[in-house]
């Protein structure tokens, strides 16, 4: 009775190529199911070599790429504005750490393109080793295009590269939140940037990126249509005070980034008086709280008839997630109060 195939057919082949492509996110990054997050394989401590990306030919290629391709592309897809970049003129050749809020893949290219060329050519961007350096092609391309260097954000042995870079005269872009914000609000600042600054004895230039979350949040690979506004605002360099520990210094950095976001929507003066930025400790790294939204144009805008001091801080702990996203994605106002302090 050996009746091969007389009744039962061959095995069912299963999903189609299209379903396979969608399921495994071809063209995108493969995702780990939520319930498997705690079961991820530990990332090996392999140091991805990036020194070649800081050599002469790679720097030249990066300059051409950023100025001839990336910057026009950003201007074509967005409406970028930059403020405060003149602070780098006062720093001379001293290396600095540039810290910023992080809510979008636009952040690194926006920051790099906002920097003066002389500064940019000596600037590297720290990037998550487990994300940007998990495959060779991704590591090579990001190192070449943006001068990225891997840092370990899941613990393990810290990389010595960032410190060596600072000591070698390179500026470093660090996103102290460690990952892109899921709702546009500023997340908790980790202590790494402050620690690096104190260890290397360099200044920290805070920067606020506003509008990037609304333009291209997590999950998008291209900005939304309509050339949304995205602004970069640099602040004055900060240094640790006498007796100030890394936790307090990180809190000050976080508060300054928040204040810069508010300043971008109102004015320098108004930002000093804003309840969102009243206390340097609010939303600082040590606390673990999320800070006010700096992606939004509305977070600190005074409501008619009410002064800033009477507003509840935006993005306060416990605030509903939808409200944070709502604020972060609100389009910047077309007209805003004029102020002598406003540029």
């Amino acid at each position: 009775m050996s009746r091969t195939g007389a009744f039962g057919g061959p095995p069912r082949p299963g999903v189609s190529v299209r379903e396979l492509a969608n399921g495994f996110r071809w063209g995108g990054r493969s995702l780990v199911p939520g319930s498997a997050q705690g079961h991820r394989r530990p990332v090996s401590a392999r140091e991805f070599p990036t020194a070649w990306a800081r050599g002469g030919p790679a720097r030249a290629a990066r300059t051409v790429f950023l100025e001839a391709a990336m910057n026009p592309l950003l201007h074509a897809a967005l409406t970028p504005t930059v403020a405060g970049a003149e602070v780098f003129g006062s720093l001379g050749d001293d290396p600095v750490i540039i810290v910023s809020n992080h809510s979008s893949h636009l952040d690194a290219p926006m920051l790099l393109c906002a920097l003066p060329r002389a500064v940019r050519e000596r600037t590297a961007v720290t990037a998550a080793a487990d994300y940007f350096f998990d495959s060779t092609w991704r590591g090579l391309s990001s190192a070449l295009a943006f001068g990225t260097v891997p840092i370990e954000r899941r613990g393990g042995a810290p990389s010595s590269t960032p410190l060596e870079l600072l000591r070698g005269g390179w500026n470093l872009v660090v996103f102290p939140e460690g990952t892109r914000s899921a709702d546009g609000s500023r997340g908790r600042f980790r202590l790494g940037a402050g620690y690096l600054a104190m260890t290397a004895g360099v200044a920290v230039v805070p920067a606020a990126l506003r509008g990037a979350y609304a333009a291209m949040p997590r999950g998008r690979a291209w900005p939304v249509p309509g050339r949304p506004r995205v602004s970069v605002r640099f602040g004055r360099p900060l240094r640790p005070g006498d007796g100030e520990d890394v936790r307090a210094f990180t809190g000050r950095l976080a508060a300054e980034v928040t204040r810069l976001g508010v300043e971008d929507t109102t004015s320098w003066w108004a930002s000093l008086r804003s309840p969102d930025t009243a206390s340097p400790a609010a939303g600082a790294g040590a606390g673990g709280d999320t800070g006010p939204s700096v992606s939004s144009g509305a977070s600190a805008r005074p409501a008619a008839g009410t002064g800033p001091a009477r507003r509840a801080p935006a993005g306060a702990p416990g605030m509903a997630r939808w409200r944070r996203i709502w604020e972060a994605t609100e389009p910047p106002a077309a007209a805003r109060p004029r102020s002598p302090w406003d540029r």
Binding site: P10, R12, P13, G14, E19, R25, P33, S35
Partner: peptide, 21 residues
Amino acid sequence: LEVDERTPPLLVHQGEGLTLE
């Protein structure tokens, strides 16, 4: 594992064959 939107098709044996489901 709890299947969510991020979960890709999963391998299933089916005799002398395999399928992704």
